[in-house]
């Protein structure tokens, strides 16, 4: 069970069950759709960007505990950051989840709870879906993001 506890840390279970920032911003400035065809996870993300700063972020959709917790914590994390910071955080998070880099825990704060994901290759896409989607939203891509 130890590795499972590394994957399903308390904070992930909590955000999986009680996701923050659910819903849709009606007057959003940016939006994007994410889809994980293998799992059927779907995500619609809306952002309000004021000047260069993300002032609000919300998501709706359907997914497993990992993908729901990831979307919940991602939307928490991007609020208040400027677009350059969000882009850097996307790269840092994806590096952590895929195991391709070992970012400084201080850089990620709470998001470091996703460090166990890289040990579960089948679940990496669940953790990265919302991050790929926010990347698409701020780069103004109209194409739905898919993890395939």
């Amino acid at each position: 069970m130890d590795e499972l506890r590394d994957l399903y840390q308390e904070m992930i279970l909590d955000h999986g069950k009680r996701p923050r920032n659910q819903g849709r911003i009606e007057a959003s400035t940016h939006e994007a759709d994410g889809h994980n065809p293998l799992c059927g996870d779907v995500l619609h993300l809306t952002l309000t960007v004021d000047g260069d700063t993300v002032t609000d972020a919300r998501f709706e959709g359907e997914g497993c505990a990992i993908s729901t917790a990831s979307a919940s914590m991602m939307t928490d994390a991007v609020k208040g950051k400027n677009l350059g910071e969000v882009k850097r955080l996307v790269d840092t998070f994806i590096g952590l989840a895929t195991g391709e880099s070992s970012p400084d825990p201080n850089e990620l704060g709470k998001l470091a709870v996703f460090s166990g994901v890289s040990e579960f290759p089948a679940r990496v896409k669940c953790a990265t879906l919302s991050w790929r989607t926010v990347e698409a939203a701020i780069s103004g891509s109209d194409e739905p993001i898919t993890t395939e």
Binding site: M1, E3, L4, L7, Y8, G16, K17, C39, G63, C64, A65, I66, F120, A122, R123, C126
Partner: peptide, 13 residues
Amino acid sequence: GIHPHDLGTVLDR
């Protein structure tokens, strides 16, 4: 309360 993919991961272990 358990998404099938989460269940699949736990069962796998």
